[in-house]
Amino acid sequence: MKSGMRWSNALFLQLGVLAGVAMLAICVGATHVPVRVVGAALIGKAAGAAQTIVMDIRLPRVLLGIAIGGGLGLAGVLLQGMFRNPLVEPYTLGISGGAALGLCVCVTLKLANLLGAVAFPLCGFIGATGTAVLVYGVGARRGIMQIRDVVLVGVMVSFVCSSLVMLIMALARAEDLYGIVFWTMGSLDAPMPGLTAIALAVALGVLAVAYLLAVRLNALALGEDGALHLGVDVERTKRMLFVMAALLTGVCVSVAGIIGFVGLVVPHVARMLVGRDHRILLVSSFLCGSIFLIGCDILARTLVAPIELPIGVVTGIAGGALFVYLLRRT
């Protein structure tokens, strides 16, 4: 390891912090659960109410925080590495805008009455996939992804989707507005229990596949010609990175709504901690994303308790302040 901390030290430190933040998130809330009770609940031996709070409410929320925070952090570092642009984030590509539009359509047309709770993530995912295909289709020519074009198309698609969301909100009935606003601010309350498992499986699965591309991402730091001359099939690598980032963003937004700034800020924090080598940076961004989101969820639940703030608001404020601080420092 060359810059930042030694890789093993960094990993252990981040895993330790994640475990600590996760434990804190399970302990604190409207009802305080002591650590020893949490331990008992995890092995199924806590008293009735504590067992339910830990295993049915707070642990699933923490697991979803790990999946969504890790997934968005990973998507951010993949895109920033691929575009060689530190300001690109998962939402730049318009994928979250597409997901939000899908969710608005779902709420307005009351598709949940027809399909059940799965309608929300399903519509969000269809919207995210649709915009990803659109951005790729317009930004790529003859199978070659023009980096600048993809970013520009993504930004434009994002604006169009935001405008359509506002149009739907302007025309929506008052009872539908709450549902739309709730989704667009994000939440770690999974609409269905199975979705947490799906989000976690997708996030960890993409992390494993992305790791196979870590060396190629390092080569891409030398530009597309530079990477090609090191033997990297640049177009194939870019396509794979785009698909992985789109899948992660689509799943995260579909399950938890729009949670901003994680994908933008987390890779920068991870780079400061472990350096620019993607062989450690990918894992580090995943862990930092999980830590950041679970931390923000604790704030969202406790700052003005018993009212719970939308987590997207907390990540936006905390992430924005952190980003400005980091920019000033570097």
Partner: peptide, 29 residues
């Protein structure tokens, strides 16, 4: 495949993209 070509051919570009990585890390690429 590009990987096979890179075992035979190395290129130094006129204006290569540089990142703040160390010289040693850069050479190891």
């Amino acid at each position: 495949k590009p990987a096979a070509l890179a075992l035979t051919l190395a290129v130094v570009n006129q204006t290569p993209d540089l990142t703040p990585m160390s010289v040693e890390d850069y050479v190891l690429l």
